[in-house]
Design a protein around this nucleic acid. Sequence first.
DNA 1: GCGCTGCTTTGATATATGTCAAAATACGCG
DNA 2: CGCGTATTTTGACATATATCAAAGCAGCGC
Lengths: 248, 248
Amino acid sequence: MSKALNVIHTLPLVAQLRSHCSSCNLRELCMPVEMSNADMQRINALTQLKRGYARGDYLYRSGDPFHSLYAIRSGSFKTQVLHEDGREQVTGFQMTGEIIGMDAISTDVHTCDAVAMESSEVCALPFDQLESMSRELPSLQRHLHKIMSREIVRDQGIMLLLGSMRAEERLAAFLLNFSQRLAARGFSATQFQLRMSRQEIGSYLGLKLETVSRAFSHFQDEGLISVKVRAIDILDMPRLQNLLKSSS
Amino acid sequence: MSKALNVIHTLPLVAQLRSHCSSCNLRELCMPVEMSNADMQRINALTQLKRGYARGDYLYRSGDPFHSLYAIRSGSFKTQVLHEDGREQVTGFQMTGEIIGMDAISTDVHTCDAVAMESSEVCALPFDQLESMSRELPSLQRHLHKIMSREIVRDQGIMLLLGSMRAEERLAAFLLNFSQRLAARGFSATQFQLRMSRQEIGSYLGLKLETVSRAFSHFQDEGLISVKVRAIDILDMPRLQNLLKSSS
DNA sequence: GCGCTGCTTTGATATATGTCAAAATACGCG
DNA sequence: CGCGTATTTTGACATATATCAAAGCAGCGC
């Protein structure tokens, strides 16, 4: 029961994700496989509302009324909470197959912003329909609950990171989590392109951008990774993982 | 839309809580009021499983199999995540009327420990029964979703706190949140007894116990609060709130 | 292809918080 | 009630990270 590793292993929101999501189809995206085709079709009817976003576009903003959850079909988003004084706290980076918007269920108002980090597509899942269908389809109901619970576990992992890890441990956790989620989608676990700035990574990890940059440089000096600005190559995965396990 | 204040305002897990919870009755505890008595009785049937815990007892541990959510009937608990190296991260302090255990839904295994902070009673709510009943009672279903979402929003608030607040801002947020939740339960918002050690507060806030102690002392020197070890008296609520709003 | 503009890196220095240690205080148990 | 143990407070000092500043790069539009 490695708890530090939990930061990594619990983050993928949609574990059952198939590697390719070529159609706007919830079976592909995030739904349980053990479901009849008839039921599946009903669920797919939900997914008609497909929308595209360009880099920097808001999917929703804090204060917006709540109607739908969103399944990310392609691309990626960040979610952030804004202070009144302008400081931002990034609460997550979401990628294809993940579901966002669950914060808004509690008050029927979104409590954070979701911003596209590149050209992206989502399926809007009207929540009242999701609720009424999940009354009839226990496996959908169960899945919905699991997705919400997974978000709670993910958040616990981030609290652990923010509350008790040092800068380089945080960055290692971030990189390993990113790597693992890419691998789950069929991409390389060792070579990838970050879509977020040092500043955004810093906000997510509770660090200043200079600290993030220095930690990247240090990892490179140590031969753990190769960094060319946003192009990352993980050279020594085991040693990177060790940074987390045996934290001083 | 004050975001720093969100840390305070969104934390009470069960906003509809009535001030006194004298019987093991979910209507009192956390359920929506607009429900027929017949339905209410069915829900109450769930709540037969009442159990008592002494200070230090575990309600569940990380790794335990999942059966039930728990409604806290009296007393209070902390939830914590343990690192393999022995460090602990407290993820929350829960009081009467709050529901815990939702982390376990995602994998059917608990991912944190819940420990009683004083003599406490809980009602176990078997989750499969909760699910099947919420298929028949839309208002129960809606309520369950709201409770899970509220936990997600609470966690976002803690991320904000851990990621971008300084030590005294964190302690102010903690005290104000505690005060508000006590007030919602009919207790004094200004005078109360903390049930947790400096070390536990520190773990929750991502600080060392000495830092917590110094922040308490400093607040006292400033005339914001009076501190007699665990007995707190908030003397200047507005100025304490200001610490949060106008963070440097 | 050149120049802007914004992002990233790196250095020098400041500061908040952590660490270590000891004394003071509170608390539980016999 | 008093002793022993755990918690809290406080001090002196160490250090990780933030801050401020400048230079180097990268990407984009013209």
